[in-house]
Design a protein around this nucleic acid. Sequence first.
DNA 1: TTGTATGCGTTATCAT
DNA 2: ATGATAACGCATACAA
Lengths: 345, 345
Amino acid sequence: MAKVTLKDVARQAGVHVSTVSRALDPQKSQLVGDSTRARVRAAAVELGYQGDAIASGLRRGRTNTFAIVVADLGNPFIAPVLRGIENGLGGRGVMPLVAETQDDSERMEQVMHAVLGRRVDAVITTAARHGDEQLLRRIARQVPLVLAVRHLPDSGLSAIVHDDERGGRLAAEHLVSAGHRRIAQLCGPVNVSSFQERTAGFRSYLELRSIVSLEPPERAAFPTLQEGQRLMSRLLDSLHEPPTAVFAHNDLMAFGALDVLKERGLSCPEDVAVMGYNDTQMTRYTAPPLTTIRLPGYELGRLAADAATMLIEAGGGATPKLTLPPVLVPRASTMDWSGSARRPD
Amino acid sequence: MAKVTLKDVARQAGVHVSTVSRALDPQKSQLVGDSTRARVRAAAVELGYQGDAIASGLRRGRTNTFAIVVADLGNPFIAPVLRGIENGLGGRGVMPLVAETQDDSERMEQVMHAVLGRRVDAVITTAARHGDEQLLRRIARQVPLVLAVRHLPDSGLSAIVHDDERGGRLAAEHLVSAGHRRIAQLCGPVNVSSFQERTAGFRSYLELRSIVSLEPPERAAFPTLQEGQRLMSRLLDSLHEPPTAVFAHNDLMAFGALDVLKERGLSCPEDVAVMGYNDTQMTRYTAPPLTTIRLPGYELGRLAADAATMLIEAGGGATPKLTLPPVLVPRASTMDWSGSARRPD
DNA sequence: TTGTATGCGTTATCAT
DNA sequence: ATGATAACGCATACAA
């Protein structure tokens, strides 16, 4: 089945290619006579004509394709975001070109190169890290760029993010009001805005209450389960006495922390309360169900898609920024802590 | 920053466009003199030249883009598969164009239309349903097509799948050998190969042991948590006495089943053992940890990418098919069933 | 309302 | 070893 082009349809319908082009373009089909339009459409259907988006893209300078650059497809939190983007795009006939940086700035550069070469109409990335400012600003001069989930303060780039500073504070408030005073946080990578802000928000509330935040000797290199395990081990090793509560910077790291607690014969929440972040799908099914901070990932994805669309239309005349609110979701992993009776708030 | 084309580089280097094209093409750069090549490259770097994959695609007839058509990005099992595909493609400079059908055959048709129009070099889909044979065979005549995860028996299409018949049998063996006799399965959608085969494999082993499989009045419309809840409720409503073990066709449905059990005051595994399928990331953290069937999703993704590449090179002269083995992962959700002492095998 | 001509950026083919 | 030219399929400015 050789590929059918406008030319073939034109011959079949007995008109010129440009007429076919117009008749088949919803925007311009009105410019063509009723009878010819019908004839052209019939011919197109009969021959099974299918427009060539590549040729059209070359001519029009628009590909109806957005690049979605994520850090890690394996992180369950990314699925709803992707889905939101996909759904936000679908209606407009735009399709997502997906790439993964694996949280590596070099790969980020390669990926950006690859997507720019494909002449995407916009780029949405959830993979920004501090240090990428220069690269991303350069990219943003060539194509509308939206930061999602992670932003780059003072970069002047559009960003749709969650209020992670607030999320960190919510976590701290929750733990403190449950009576905890020996509190630690397992921090995600230092060069990612989300984790920096969670750290800061959490710490600032503790300081407000004059509580010292216990912290492991280092931060996670990646926000993964394995790193959660590693940090929790190091934390326990570095203290004479375990903390009574731990705030992990995402749910995966919290699960890693739970592993280590169990391994060492500590129970959650009786000995150590644990909370996560993101409220990924499974948190309510774990043992114990995990207290966490819920972020509207799907919503954020849709809004990022909208922002990218706006950016295209505005032609540089706007930089949409939005910060979505997190919500505390209290569950058993921070309830009924045995120490709360002994040391009431 | 206006876009830099071959023409600009040619002018800067003082050569003809076609020379630039050759000098910059790794395949043909040998055909051009050493000094000119150096000059051209210098000019390209200086101007920040970046090839236009759209124009190149139009001319060459290859876009270095594969379409990945999935049913549901929200299903956690799809993440490792996507990741495997992405990694399998990355090395070859190919990028994935991702689309979601939401398990709707009509949307499948639209999506296929959209990706064909984008002149992708190949299509990998994990969203095939019985009833899609005709559509997909038509697509396969126009572009190399690989079915992944779900296949279409007798369609003659390439397929990289898991051995779900075997997986179903493993599940049945496990439950029976734990002493269960009142066993039910919560079946996924009837028109999807994976679930049909899980159903068949499970049933065939029970028949072998002369055990009647209890089943809810209907199957799930989608393999989701909500449907798992619904089916479990209907199952319990339809029986005088609950089953002692339930095989859910994926982990999500199993979690739904657990919800309902808890709601009704039944405990797992003491009253009812539950097992899932897929071994998604969270199964070891749930309460109780979920017995499940592990599938090599990442591997399957990589192999599907390879198969698609092969298909392109073979030009229709091959239809790679592969079936990957599942593995039983026993955990607490099917252990220490209280009835096993009373009715030993 | 329809047809003509031209170009989007690249590459293959031919010629030099 | 390099240059000239045409063509990939489509869309637009312009002419009729």
